[in-house]
């Protein structure tokens, strides 16, 4: 028997789940299980209670209202991957989700689970940072919302109180002609990204950048928004030289170091990945051919 003993609860409604979370000490929410189950198997997590929310099926949905996309927290990563609505309205999210684990893990893994686990390398967290997503949180007093920047407090730590649950994520959409790119470097396809880079940008008719949002994943405890670089880009006509200069600014970011990967290597990857992501996003925003490093991607 691998996981430590716990009491198991399978609520069938959000209210029931919230009552359990409010009443039980040391309880963990089990969604898709692609992070919590390994932690239980390795006994990194030792909850007294596991609250399995897979029966609360009305927390799984994808809907659009005007320029706002709302995705229920229990939506499987697979359903995001295959959603025509997301492919059209939120292509950055689709490009990122293809790099989340493998088909076998995306079939079970959920959007909310990934955000609440908040691994520094999580693609879903980086995309939420780039969009400035709003998180809908349910608790005993009703619902509240938090901007992603307030939600992601620190290394694998969210602003959720023990009696609260993430129920939905809202993405303010960008116009359809916006350019986007999400790329990462990992030791194998689907493995944890050592560094990832995501870009959304818009250009006017003359090719000058009018809006940009950029973030790096995997370098810090939480996704690193590059707002200063994004501000620098405004008004500039995109070119390989401009993007190389901008990406060079990643050379002094505060990057994590672990037993396998040095901070220097992460900074080097950040520069290269950000430059490539900017080039690809700009080509998509302006209808130009994709750069050579991105030609395997869909235009």
């Amino acid at each position: 028997m691998k996981p430590p003993p716990f009491a198991y609860h399978a609520p069938s409604s959000l209210n029931e789940a919230l009552q359990l979370l409010g009443r039980l000490e040391n309880a963990r929410v089990l969604a898709g299980g692609q992070s919590l189950m390994p932690m239980l198997n390795m006994r990194f997590a030792q909850p007294d209670h596991v609250v399995d929310i897979n029966g609360i099926t009305d927390l799984a949905y994808i809907r659009r209202e005007g320029m706002m996309l709302e995705i229920g927290a229990l939506t499987r990563q697979r359903d995001i991957e295959f959603s025509p609505l997301i492919a059209e309205a939120c292509p950055l999210l689709r490009e990122a989700i293809l790099q989340v684990g493998h088909r076998q893990t995306r079939n079970r893994g959920t959007l909310g689970g990934s955000l609440c686990h908040l691994d520094p390398a999580a693609e879903m967290a980086a995309v939420a940072a780039i969009y400035g997503a709003e998180l809908v949180i349910a608790g005993p007093q009703g619902q509240r919302t938090a901007a992603f920047a307030e939600f992601a407090l620190d290394y694998m730590t969210t602003c959720l109180a023990p009696e609260e649950m993430l129920v939905a994520v809202r993405y303010p959409l960008w116009p359809a002609e916006s350019g986007y790119c999400f790329i990462e470097y990992a030791r194998r396809h689907g493995d944890f990204a050592i560094v990832s880079a995501g870009v959304l940008l818009r250009a006017d008719a003359s090719g000058r950048i009018s809006q940009a949002s950029l973030a790096l994943g995997g370098v810090g405890a939480v996704p690193l928004k590059l707002d200063a670089i994004a501000a620098e880009l405004i008004g500039k006509a995109g070119s390989p030289a401009v993007f190389a200069t901008m990406a060079e600014a990643c050379g002094d970011i505060d990057a994590m170091e672990d037993a396998l990967i040095t901070a220097t290597y992460r900074r080097q990857l950040a520069k290269t990945l950000l430059r490539r992501a900017l080039e690809t996003a700009y080509a998509r925003a302006t209808g130009q051919p994709l750069p050579r490093h991105a030609q395997h991607r869909a235009a």
Partner: peptide, 9 residues
């Protein structure tokens, strides 16, 4: 649908 049986109860 394919899934890891070690990651399910």
């Amino acid at each position: 649908r394919s899934a890891r049986s070690c990651l399910m109860l």
